[in-house]
Amino acid sequence: MATLPEWLRPGARPVSLLPQRATAHRLLRRTLGAMGRSISLLVREPDGPGVGALRTADPRAKLLAAVGLIVATTFLRGLLPLAACLALALALSAAAKVPGRRLLPVMIAVPLASTALLLPATLNIVSGGPPLLVLWRSAGGAFGPWRLPEVVAVTADGLLVAGRMVLRTTACAALALLLAATTRPQRLLGGLRSLGVPQAFVMVLAMAERYLAVLLRSAQELHLARLARSVAPIGVRREEAWAAAGVGAVFRRTRSLADAVTLAMVSRGFTGEVRLLRPACWRRTDWLLVAAAAAVAAGLLILDRRLA
């Protein structure tokens, strides 16, 4: 019989906890918790069937409409048409009852991230034009081989460029989200396939989608496993180290599970073709959807040219 170490025997004295600073790690812990929650939203059960006309429309029609609008959006230059496009996407999301908890994170994260990325573009160093707000003045001179600019300032042109890009990315993200939130991934892939997108391309997308789902699930499990094991807060340093190690573990696990999923598919006769139960059937309203999207796209482009 194996002898148990003293600390595993019943009645062993618990180890006294190290004194902890209560606040330092709270932010990180909260972030991890939020991550877990948003992940469980993403990998939640699929939406109930048929809320709103957009959900029941043929995925091919939705794909055509969304892609058309997104392409048109990338050509828009005026702030007003771009804002109109964003408003339209949001209105449609509301009409299709896309849950706010799904919409909001994207609508906050995308503008913030693109603003952060585009901040340098507002400066006179990147975009020319008269300065609007001077941030820094120097005597000029040189730093090694580089000449230092005399002023660093925000310019009107820069602001326009950045504003246009932020609006554009946000509008495109809203449109893409609308499509994703109203169509199950498999239907979407089936739609792509029947629109003539090559099988190899659809397979890559399907793989990406599967890896992502598995990745999110393992991240959540690891997070929970870690929470389950922590009796007391462990301190920021170690929490960070854990997060770093966790990311590696998540990726390794994702790979092996996704490979196993592929084997399971092959085992049930998968040959690379997406085949669906209740294949989508194109109805008259689907033509309507495509026509409406085309009209809106054309309208926005014309408005844009007029205003320019």
Partner: peptide, 25 residues
Amino acid sequence: FLFQNSDAQLFCPTVEDELAFGPLQ
């Protein structure tokens, strides 16, 4: 083949789709 890891074996959005996968293939 019933896999040791059910998570690997189930990859469809619903149970119905899961059952339909093989026959459709």
